[in-house]
Design a protein around this nucleic acid. Structure first.
Length: 491
RNA sequence: GAGGGUAUAGCUCAGCUGGUAGAGCAGCGGCCUUUUAAGCCGUUGGCCGAAGGUUCGAAUCCUUCUACCCUCACCA
């Protein structure tokens, strides 16, 4: 850093502003490198970050990188002004430059800009990690890759500069979200925004973050889900509403969980969960088609076939398939015994639903590699879902699973206000029994239901997990630009 | 919350059973007018994550702490 400050002073003493205001780029690097024939002998203006520099006395080669790729520069002392040549000598890797010059091809065949002028656009003071790569046949070998995960996550800006495949991940993330938006817009659904700060949290079983509103002197919760507000809007008369937003859950962190994460929820009036299954498989496969041109993708070495229709399996059938036990109608004691036989630990306050859910997560979930809808859950696990039309002990709910993980949750929404009140009261009891993830009673939501909500299908999709699937990333941190980290010590 | 692993130069890493810190790249000074992990010659750079302890002597052994990674637990 010392040397760079000295250079900064030298550059200033040449009468050059090291932080000028703009530069008129004529083309991106790849426009030129991919259409070299059209550009030969033509003058272009390119800009970007200096990524390598190979000096040869009175001449020099370098690469600059812009947002789309890299292009080589060739600087000759006899082709530019003395001051520009001196300036070029003072440039460091990482500096941002603008170059005017002519396109030509070197004798090794690389498209290159022969500089006529060199302009410094921003002087860097910190050295960039130097990553080098070499082409060995078809293989690209990378040397000294900037790979320390802590540094990469804490200094994502450096990660993005130096690791192009990381940039690609976030481009794909953006595409996925944009496709989802288009998908719903095309169906005529309305994108809405609902409160992040909520006096009563609900819509999911999770512990919330608590905050305080000074003027009102009251506790508020950061939302754990958008569900109850979105359904109020269905009561209000919209046919379809969706929201893509951050939710916050005060739970542990691992490669599938970040305290704040992106959720997409959609509610559609006059539909049920069968409709929603078709919507999910259509949406996910069409995203794959848009991004990869096909509905079969590879994730962590496994081929995943997203082509609809996806497999549909009832929850109890799936458990029987993998454990040989039919849990339907079993008493609490019987369930505890089964869990014990399967070496699954249970808590005292757990009821039937929770034990079934636990057995399912342990024994079935990891096996659900290809896309599968697990359907028809016990009613006490799903306080906001409508009872199954054929069996009041179950609800019309499904969760889509891919690569052993759930990526969403959906149901025919409960719109019977009396049943809903009873479900809330059952949750209250769980709260008292020590289940700190049980849901709060929301009187205003009940009032809304009393005004009447049409039959409605609802869905939540974890966007981060979907992006992990589409970008072939093993950890949620790799699809979040700034994953949550403990604060670092001050330098 | 539990267990395991990692922490050495700006980056990537060596450093054996304790003997006083090393390479490549980057940087700095030279040479070099088509190189591309450019090359050649020379050279700077370290509180060995933090604090304590054992020892004549600690990057190395011990303890505690911190951060990150992995697995599990919790959990969409």
């Amino acid at each position: 850093m010392r040397g760079r400050r000295d250079k900064l002073e030298q550059i200033k003493s040449l009468g050059i502003n090291p932080y000028p205001y703009n530069f008129k780029r004529s083309h991106f690097s790849v426009e030129i490198t991919q259409n070299t024939d059209d550009f030969l002998e033509k003058e272009v203006q390119v800009s970007g970050r200096l990524m390598s520099k190979r000096g040869h006395g009175k001449t020099s080669f370098a690469h600059i990188m812009d947002s789309k790729g890299r292009i080589q520069l060739y600087v000759r002392k006899d082709r530019i002004s003395e001051q520009d040549f001196e300036l070029f000598g003072l440039l460091d890797i990482g500096d941002i430059v603008g170059i005017k010059g002519e396109v030509f091809v070197t004798r090794t065949g690389e498209t290159t800009v022969k500089a006529k002028s060199v302009e410094l656009l921003s002087k860097t003071l910190r050295p960039l990690p130097i990553v080098k790569e070499k082409q060995e046949g078809d293989e690209k070998v990378v040397f000294d890759q900037f790979a320390d995960k802590e540094l990469r996550y804490r200094q994502r800006y450096v990660d993005l500069i130096v690791n192009p495949e990381v940039r690609d991940v976030f481009v794909t993330r953006s595409k996925v979200i944009s496709k989802i938006r288009h998908f719903f817009d095309n169906l005529g659904f309305l994108e809405v925004e609902t409160p992040v700060l909520q006096p009563i949290y609900g819509g999911a079983s999770a512990r919330p973050f608590v905050t305080h509103h000074n003027a009102l002197d009251m506790e508020l919760y950061l939302r754990v889900a958008d569900e109850l507000y979105l359904k109020r809007l269905i009561v209000g008369g919209y046919d379809g509403v969706y929201e893509i937003s951050k939710d916050f859950r005060n739970e542990g962190m691992d490669r599938f969980h970040n305290p704040e994460f992106t959720m997409m929820e959609v509610y559609v009036a006059y539909q049920d969960y069968h409709y929603m299954m078709e919507l999910v498989e259509t949406m996910v496969s069409s995203i794959a088609k848009d991004i990869y041109g096909k509905t079969k993708i590879t994730h962590q070495g496994r081929e995943i076939d997203l082509t609809p229709p996806w497999k549909r399996v009832k929850l109890f059938d799936s458990i029987e398939e993998y454990t040989g036990e039919n849990l339907y109608g079993k008493s609490l004691d019987e369930l505890r015994k089964v869990a014990k036989d399967l070496h699954i630990e249970t808590e005292d306050f757990w009821r039937e639903g929770k034990i079934i859910d636990e057995i399912f997560s342990e024994k079935v979930e990891p096996n659900l590699i290809q896309p599968t809808f697990i359907t028809d859950y016990p009613v006490e696990l799903s306080p906001l879902a409508k009872r199954h039309r054929d069996d009041p002990k179950l609800v019309e709910r499904f969760e889509p699973f891919i690569v052993g993980g759930e990526i969403g949750n959906a149901f025919s929404e409960l719109n019977d206000p009396i049943d809903q009140r009873e479900r809330f009261l059952a949750q209250q009891k769980l709260l008292e029994l020590g289940d700190d993830e049980a849901q709060m009673l929301d009187n205003d939501y009940l009032r809304a239901l009393e005004y009447g909500m049409p039959p409605t299908a609802g869905l939540g999709i974890g966007i981060d997990r979907l992006v992990m699937l589409f970008t072939d990333q093993p950890s949620i941190r790799d699809v979040l630009l700034f994953p949550h980290m403990r604060p670092e010590k001050n330098e």
